[in-house]
Nucleic acid binder design. Structure first.
Lengths: 216, 216
DNA sequence: ACAATAGTGTCTTTTAGACACTATCGG
DNA sequence: CCGATAGTGTCTAAAAGACACTATTGT
């Protein structure tokens, strides 16, 4: 068609995806991988070609660069600053991604305030490549904001979990104490499916799964 | 640099912006303009060149195609479906835009459920071009969701307004009744700045402005 | 028995919903 | 005075915060 034709020679921005993959294990961890070109830790991601959906490219790149698959992903925001990549104009669609435990044990960094702690030492959010530090901060804010009016937390937990376990996720992410009111506050989100039998002392915990009836 | 070089010949998606500009005047109105190429009503917007910010292009295009300026704008979501534009792969960053009254009186359509009513008749959201019907629906949902935990409503109102006026916006958008509790619910958001003196019968209403101290 | 963990009950405080009533206006 | 419109007070119901207490488990 004629508009598309006239745009053939039109120089337009590159499009990329970046994934902020979180897990929760006593604290919030984010997956990072080293970018050899700029020599910094970055979010996994890559360029979006004409014939592929951003989220599909995301899954492929996160698998290739970070060894993770099977995670939950939803769009976070699109970053289009003119100089976010000094090499050329690159607009990036960022995704908030959640997983439970993770496939590959490497590349996880505990996000504690503005500092990232990994097995190879400690760095600040601002030390990440490009504008990725800000993207991680935005992703965490979104995750925390949506905790109670979405089912995001599901994706940070296994299919079955106990009340103390899910409460620890909420309390860790929100930095607040729900005392013994947590079950009450969960309302109809959870459905009991059994008892946990671990060798530890103390009363056996009831196992729950997410109630599929529940909706935001 | 070498990556950018190697990407020069790489065919990548076009990037556009689309603006969902709302106003509130007894009901929610959205600004649309006719796209002559596809012969349908569409959101105002256009292509993003390499050297410009999406939001700047948005303002320019909304001014050029819809005659509106001075509105509030925040990013809504990015739409990247492979076939959203049959002519070629076009990824669009959509913006939620708000204004009070508007500059140009034309092109406003009352959004009432799924139907759009304008001076030239009535159509459904699904009759808009591309995926713009869905984008409008997403924008309204976002606006309504953020009403209480953001200051979005400011941008739908003039600098000074009365309690019944702002209450009407909330009640119209949420479809619920706040009885006489609205002032209480507004908490510290508003600050009184005078009295409205219109010629109409009834007690004079107190004029308020947004309290700059208040934050989400 | 006891430390450790899970879970229940029950207060108080705060917030939300509903509406009766008072206060001003113009004509 | 009367119909309109704006605004206050108060009562009840529901939700949130805080914590004492009970219930099980392994050692």
């Amino acid at each position: 068609m004629h508009v598309a034709e006239s745009l053939k020679k039109y120089e337009h921005p590159y499009l990329t995806v970046d994934g902020v993959l979180f897990r929760f294990d006593g604290g919030l961890d984010v997956k990072l991988c080293r970018n050899d070109e700029i020599g910094k830790l970055c979010l996994p991601g890559g360029f979006v070609p004409v014939d592929r959906l951003a989220v599909d490219v995301l899954r492929e790149k996160v698998m290739a660069k970070a060894g993770e698959s099977g995670f939950y992903a939803e769009q976070l925001q699109t970053y289009d600053g003119l100089d976010r990549d000094p090499r050329s104009r690159v607009v990036s669609i960022a995704y908030l991604c959640l997983t439970c435990g993770g496939t590959d044990g490497n590349g996880w960094y505990r996000l504690d305030g503005d500092v990232l702690r990994g097995s190879d030492g400690e760095l600040a959010l601002g030390d990440l490549g490009f504008d990725h530090g800000g993207i991680v901060a935005d992703a965490r804010r979104r995750l925390v904001n949506k905790l109670w009016y979405s089912d995001l937390v599901r994706h940070l937990l296994p299919g079955m979990f106990t009340m103390p376990e899910i409460q620890a996720v909420y309390e860790g992410l929100e930095g607040k104490d729900y005392y013994n009111n947590f079950k009450r506050d969960m309302g109809s989100r959870l459905a009991p499916v059994g008892l946990r039998k671990d060798g530890k002392p103390g009363r056996k915990a009831v196992l729950y799964e997410w109630n599929s009836e529940w909706e935001v």
